[in-house]
């Protein structure tokens, strides 16, 4: 990049405001991007409250998603109900530990990791952090990329429900956890999208400036 050799300047320092959608730069004070129409804000000051609101909604849905059954399986006259974790344990017992691990990662490890990561990022931009902004930004990119993959469990339930309708021989119905889990995934995706990653870099720049003064 042409600017690589020169010291870094941000749009805000130069009295400009950047469009985060189409990367066009405008003079500070411009309301709307003249190219793509996005509302321009130098720093999204309401970003963190939106992050926390979606985060809380997502967490609230995550509990019923794990407590209620995801699937109701009926084989002949036997009916069994499986929660997410219960279903994975079943799979491991049936001799498919690899798939059980995929499901545990996608439905348990990733959601919990996401809640922790978003909470930590949001606190770190407010309170400051010793972790370099490069690593925090990397974490944010991972959270944004990986979030959608948690939907896999909802899709599996949809596929099984449509497919396993064999009269008395076997049938599968969705449980209430499917809806709660889908909502939880959608809310955490919105939470991650609401976060303004520019805040990570601002705070880091402020911190290093105060270090130099001290």
């Amino acid at each position: 990049m042409s600017g690589a050799a020169t010291p870094m300047t941000t749009a805000r320092e130069a009295g400009l405001v950047a469009c985060t959608r189409c990367t066009r730069v405008w003079p500070m004070g411009t309301d709307r991007c003249g190219r793509c129409g996005k509302t321009l804000v130098s720093r999204d000051t309401h970003s963190l409250s939106r992050v926390w609101a979606w985060w809380a909604a997502g967490l609230l849905c995550y509990f019923p998603a794990n407590l209620y059954p995801m699937l109701r399986t009926q084989v002949l006259f036997q009916v069994s109900e499986d929660t997410i974790v219960g279903g994975a344990i079943e799979l491991a017992k049936q001799g498919a530990p690899f798939v059980a691990i995929i499901i545990l990662i996608a439905s348990v490890a990733i959601p919990i990791g996401k809640f922790a990561a978003i909470a930590w990022l949001a606190t770190s931009v407010r309170r400051g952090s010793r972790t370099p902004p490069q690593s925090r930004h990397r974490l944010y990119e991972i959270v944004e990329y990986i979030g959608r993959w948690s939907m896999i469990d909802v899709f599996v339930v949809a596929i099984l429900t449509a497919l396993v309708q064999l009269n008395l021989a076997a049938s599968i119905k969705p449980g209430p956890a499917a809806l709660a889990f889908a909502l939880s995934v959608i809310f955490t995706m919105l939470s991650a999208q609401a976060f303004d990653p520019r805040l990570i870099w601002d705070r880091a720049a402020d911190d290093s400036a105060s270090d130099e003064r001290a």
């Binding site: 042409s2 985060t20 990367t23 066009r24 930004h137 990653p197 870099w201």
Partner: peptide, 15 residues
């Protein structure tokens, strides 16, 4: 400004 590009993730600007 039309000849600049801003990083959407960290706000750094470049020609």
């Amino acid at each position: 400004p039309a000849h600049l590009i801003a990083c959407p993730q960290c706000d750094a600007i470049y020609r």
